[in-house]
Amino acid sequence: MRQSVRVKTLKIDDRDVGAREDQTLLEVCRENGIFIPALCHLDGLTPVGACRLCLVEVKGQRRLLPACVTRVEEGMEVNTATERLKKYRRQILELFFSERNHICSVCVSNGHCELQSLAQQLGVDHVHFPYRYPRLPVDASHDRFVIDHNRCILCTRCVRVCDEIEGAHTWDVMGRGINARVITDLNKPWGESESCTSCGKCVHVCPTGALVEKGRSVAEMAKRRQFLPYLTLMREGKQ
């Protein structure tokens, strides 16, 4: 397994950094303490480049590139925090808030929500896109867990953790576009799922209050993710 991995040097925000050639920009930035927001990305799961929050500017590239799937290259010059990027990130967060119902004050994940904390961090103090507020169901048919589609941002972390780590593939996405929604099995109540192992991984990787444990009240639902890097390593046979 341990072949000689070459090292690349690149410039991020005018800082010289070194990286292994198989690393992504996001990994290198986080290693070097450079903040890059991301909601769909989670260490240990296949990156999908869907939330667009980690877009960065790379010199010589016409388009913005998602740091989570962009590999480092020798001599790359990357900017992660230009005014333009900050503006887009705020606008994207606003799109998330406007898509469904994200009223923090009544949410069990209030104070433990990645969407909320990113908004605070990036200074999103209001949403100037019209709220869509579709009326979406809350499925509490499972013994231990609840899914509230109103809080779901379609990051697909639950889909990936269930497929890649637990191996159950209970979750997937149905429909498309603005009507897309996560489902269990044949879009049946979660509690009736034939494939769900009730392992709870989906709940703990969910960045918002969409997937939560039953019996939690407002602001009580903190997520535990320590298991993920370990399980990933085990699956890859590196331990």
Binding site: H169, D172, M174, L186, S195
Partner: peptide
């Protein structure tokens, strides 16, 4: 219908949610 989705899923060994996701996409 559901019966058909289940049957195709079983023969092709594809998760049910994947079949439903494709059928509605």
């Amino acid at each position: 219908d559901e019966e058909a989705l289940r049957y195709v899923a079983a023969v092709l060994r594809v998760p049910l949610s994947h079949v439903y996701g494709v059928a509605t996409f």
